[in-house]
Design a protein around this nucleic acid. Sequence first.
DNA 1: GTGAAAGCGCTAACAG
DNA 2: CTGTTAGCGCTTTCAC
Lengths: 369, 369
Amino acid sequence: MSEPHSRANKRQTVTIKEVAERAGVSAMTVSRVLNNQDVVRDETRTRVEEAIRALKYRPNILARGLAGGRSLHIGLIYENPSHGYLSEFLVGALNRCRMARHHLVLEELSSGGEEPQRAQVAERILAAGVDAVIIPPPLSDNREVIAALDELEMPFARVINCEQTGQGFEVTIDDVAAARAMTEHLIRAGHRDIGFIKGAPGHLAGERRLEGFLAAMSAHGLTVPYAAVAQGQFTYRSGMDAAEALLAASPRPTAIFASNDDMAAGAISTALRHGLRVPEDLSVVGFDDTEIATTIWPQLTTVRQPIAEMAATAVELLSRHAVESAPYEDAHAARLLDVEIVERGTVAPPAASSREKGGGQAQGARSVR
Amino acid sequence: MSEPHSRANKRQTVTIKEVAERAGVSAMTVSRVLNNQDVVRDETRTRVEEAIRALKYRPNILARGLAGGRSLHIGLIYENPSHGYLSEFLVGALNRCRMARHHLVLEELSSGGEEPQRAQVAERILAAGVDAVIIPPPLSDNREVIAALDELEMPFARVINCEQTGQGFEVTIDDVAAARAMTEHLIRAGHRDIGFIKGAPGHLAGERRLEGFLAAMSAHGLTVPYAAVAQGQFTYRSGMDAAEALLAASPRPTAIFASNDDMAAGAISTALRHGLRVPEDLSVVGFDDTEIATTIWPQLTTVRQPIAEMAATAVELLSRHAVESAPYEDAHAARLLDVEIVERGTVAPPAASSREKGGGQAQGARSVR
DNA sequence: GTGAAAGCGCTAACAG
DNA sequence: CTGTTAGCGCTTTCAC
């Protein structure tokens, strides 16, 4: 309680004015340098930059936002967070916000199991005092939420797995193409009998993924018997059960494509319980590249969504809309981002035996190495 | 492209002035109402509140921060994010920041595998222009980072798993007590032969958890044979291997306590491969309550850390330090937060048979069903 | 209790 | 190319 450092307390220590003074220019010129406006003479710019460095000057974001008037408060509304997804989403959104000098406001809409009420959603959004909203799945597919936003005339961008409804900005991936690519990856590895685990009924992303799977199979002249497609619910547990059904078929599939990672992990546990080794006896692939994909062993070969990039794109679209006062029509444009296949340890060529009807010689076969 | 709504664009629509006007008071009075200063006469306050509601007025955070001067920019520096952890941490930090009108700045210190350089860390922190820093594990235990912060005289709060070094503010949990409680939970369920999977060598949290385990065992008069403690590395894979060793012991343990969730999940997969059912033939518990705990089936009984709360506490400590200009000595106070045991599906009383010496009947056993 | 004046640190819009 | 003048929307400080 004597002479403490007293830093980071009240007012800022070094401001634009002091930099200006030291560089022998006006504050305005310093501001121009800060904002990379190329009207400043090189020599002047250098002097200013030196002063900035010498003084360890850092611009005040708040003052900038206030004066500039182009700083948005963007609400991120979410529900039942799958933490892995949310975190990556947040990082992407937060970073883009910083670059554009926007602010992110988190708003959890936890509706203890029930549908969120339109009026309450509107209330919360209003109370948050935001200028625009970005919505990750699963809330991005909620009709009540979208309706509330529409009534509020609040600009929003949805990162979606499901249906493109043409409301607000939409950022998504091409599920069909992604599933198709993954299926082809399996086919290239030599698989012909591939089982597929569907997602929860009514979930469009799941249906799209099935569509891509079917398309790839038929493009390669492969038929998909009825028993090769099992219903899942996107949960680990449902993946276990679906794999149980799939593995009972004859011929037994040599590979399983689950439409998300949790189900793929569940399928692996079933394979284990059946004494099957992964990937030697059974290849398994997932979708999403969530945390479990790299946690389990062997690590899961899966499809990776660019979650952070999608979030950044959502912020970007809103930002442009606001700054440029872009006409409302543009809001309907959807952005399709690329996915990639992440090869890890759960795909191997099928063992020779399993391609034949009754082959015994392959049992116990090791992977070739 | 004619008469768009043009909202959320440039300047704010409704400001404190208009509220003041409508309520027939000065802006100052509105400000007092907004900040819950109890000097305002009740009747006046009511009038102001009505005006606020009628105009749908929302204060401008930027202006508040600028004028008030008590708004901090808090840096969150992280590395190798375990997304589940980071996301929860972020939510806690962000929410508390909003309440205190602070701003969170994300800073990833990704040091492609190598130790971060002290000078570079300092550089990044400076460039971020923050007033204080919060650090989640594992970076919170990094000596270079702490040294860099110390040299910068930058206030920081560490959320730690490991060693309390007395540098900066520290927020942590009592690992010993938590492990002890979990062990007692197992003992209460009837287990006597409990195997333990240690964390990575040198990792203090792991050692503390072992300490708690041993303390509980000896408090209940149970001995822990050498073979009942296996080395792990905190990874799923190492959990598989450790369980392999543990299950080879005689008598075979009826329960396994892994010092994190990933290893517990790995142990379960090994049990499965051995034809053991969880929890009927073997109980397994973890530590941390990360995402995998609720993803797998059966869901893992584990110890839950209050991650969001720890992050919020870190922000709170820094906030108080700055606002109150608290003396530096206080910075050394550590906050110990409570954990809780989350009972899910991987603990059951031990089967009678496994308590005896020679069980042969289990080999090749299929799961029931 | 309430109000008036004076900025917080920065940038827009103009002049020069 | 650079500087001047006015604020951005709010809160502080001090009167009344």
